[in-house]
C-alpha cells in the first residue's frame, strides 16, 4: 500500500568560521582609464557562484554595469587572502571586503570629480547612467569614463584595498556561553512523501523550501543553492552511506554509493525571504550550507506522518522502513 505524509523541518545556521577565529577577507580594486575595473580576491568559486555575486557587489558599489568588471580569484601570485570558501562566508565576508575596497577607489575618483564639477563635497555627487552627476542638478556631469581617464592623468590612482572581519566571540569552555557566530541564517522546508509499505521505498513528491538569506544578491543563484541543498538533504536522508568494514570503505564508487539522480528529485518550490542583515553587503547573508539542513528532517517527519514509524538512524533505507513497520505490528 502507498501512504502519503507531510513533514516539516525548521533549522538555523551560524555562518562564518565562528568562535573568534580570524574570519577575514581582503580585496583589491583598480579602476582603469576607460572606467572598467579589476577586482582581485582570494575567494575560490567552487561552483556555487561567488564570483558572479562578488562582481555584482563591485558593480553596484561603483555604479557601473557588471560587464565593466573583471575579477581574478584565488591565485596566490596576485590575489590577497580571502579565507576559505566555507562556512557560508564568501558573499558576506568577501562581499563586504570588496564593497569597502570599491568605496576607497571611488572616493579618490569622486574627490577629483568634485573639483572638476565645482562641488564642495563628494556627498554632492552621484554615479549613474555612465556619468558622475551633481545631485539635484544632473545637467552638470562628466562621463564616468572621461572622469577616470582625466583623474588618472592628473596623477591619481583609482585603487582600493580593504579587509573585512566577521565578528565572533569565543564560547566559554566551562559552560559554552558566548556569541560564537554572526549572522545566523534560517530556513523551513516542508516535504510530502509517499511510502510504499510493501517495498519500503520512499518517494519524495514535493518540497517547499523557504530560506532567509538577508538579501538575495542574485536570486537565481540563491534558488540554485536551495535546490542543490534539497538534493543533498534528500540524498543524506534516504540514499547515501559510506559503508565501513573494519575502517575500510566498501562502497567507494557511484554504483554502490548512491547520490540522487534527477528521477529521485521532486519538483522544488523555493521562497526567498529577505530579512535584511544590516552588517551584510546590501543586507545579504549566506545561503550555501543553511539550504541543505531542513530537507532531511522534513522528509523523516513526513515518513513518520505517512506510516507512523520513526527512522532515527540515517539513512531511511527501504530495509530499515520495512523493519520498523514489522516491529510496529
Amino acid at each position: 500500500m502507498k501512504k502519503r505524509g507531510i513533514g516539516i523541518g525548521c533549522t538555523f545556521y551560524g555562518t562564518g568560521y565562528g568562535n573568534g577565529f580570524p574570519d577575514i577577507s581582503t580585496a583589491f580594486v583598480e579602476i582603469h582609464d576607460d572606467g572598467s575595473v579589476l577586482i582581485l580576491t582570494g575567494a575560490v568559486d567552487c561552483g556555487q557562484g561567488s564570483t558572479t555575486v562578488l562582481t555584482q557587489i563591485a558593480a553596484e558599489e561603483l555604479g557601473i554595469p557588471t560587464d565593466m568588471v573583471t575579477i581574478t580569484c584565488a591565485d596566490t601570485g596576485c590575489t590577497p587572502d580571502s579565507g576559505t570558501t566555507a562556512a557560508t562566508r564568501q558573499t558576506y565576508t568577501t562581499g563586504n571586503a570588496i564593497r569597502l575596497a570599491c568605496q576607497k577607489a571611488k572616493k579618490t575618483l569622486l574627490e577629483w570629480a568634485a573639483k572638476e564639477l565645482g562641488t564642495n563635497t563628494i556627498e554632492g555627487l552621484v554615479i549613474a547612467e555612465g556619468k558622475i552627476m551633481v545631485k539635484g542638478h544632473p545637467q552638470k556631469s562628466i562621463t564616468f569614463k572621461e572622469a577616470c581617464a582625466k583623474a588618472r592623468f592628473a596623477g591619481n590612482r583609482l585603487i582600493g584595498e580593504a579587509s573585512f572581519t566577521t565578528h565572533a566571540t569565543q564560547v566559554n569552555m566551562e559552560d559554552g556561553q558566548g556569541a560564537p557566530y554572526w549572522p545566523y541564517a534560517f530556513g523551513t522546508q516542508i516535504a510530502e512523501v509517499e511510502v510504499d509499505t510493501e517495498t519500503g521505498k520512499v518517494e519524495v513528491l514535493r518540497i517547499v523550501a523557504a530560506q532567509d538569506v538577508g538579501k538575495a544578491i542574485n536570486p537565481q543563484s540563491v534558488e540554485g543553492q536551495i535546490e542543490g541543498g534539497v538534493a543533498q538533504g534528500l540524498g543524506w536522508s534516504l540514499l547515501e552511506e559510506v559503508k565501513l568494514s573494519s575502517g575500510n570503505i566498501t562502497n567507494p564508487a557511484f554504483s554502490s554509493y548512491l547520490i540522487p539522480t534527477v528521477l529521485d528529485m521532486p519538483e522544488i518550490e523555493t521562497y526567498i525571504i529577505e530579512s535584511h542583515e544590516p552588517t551584510g553587503p546590501y543586507g545579504a547573508k549566506g545561503v550555501g550550507e543553511p539550504a541543505m539542513l531542513s530537507a532531511a528532517p522534513a522528509i523523516l517527519n513526513a515518513i513518520h506522518d505517512a506510516i507512523g514509524v520513526r527512522i532515527n538512524d540515517l539513512p531511511a533505507t527501504p530495509e530499515k522502513i520495512l523493519e520498523a513497520l514489522q516491529e510496529k505490528k
Partner: peptide, 24 residues
C-alpha cells in the same frame, strides 16, 4: 540562544515558516 547570544537582527525564521505553510 543556548549560548546566551541575543539575535539582534535579521531573524527571518517565522517568515520562512509562514511561506512554506501557506504554500501547503
Amino acid at each position: 540562544t543556548a549560548t546566551g547570544q541575543i539575535l539582534e537582527t535579521s531573524v527571518g525564521l517565522k517568515e520562512t515558516l509562514l511561506a512554506t505553510a501557506k504554500a501547503y
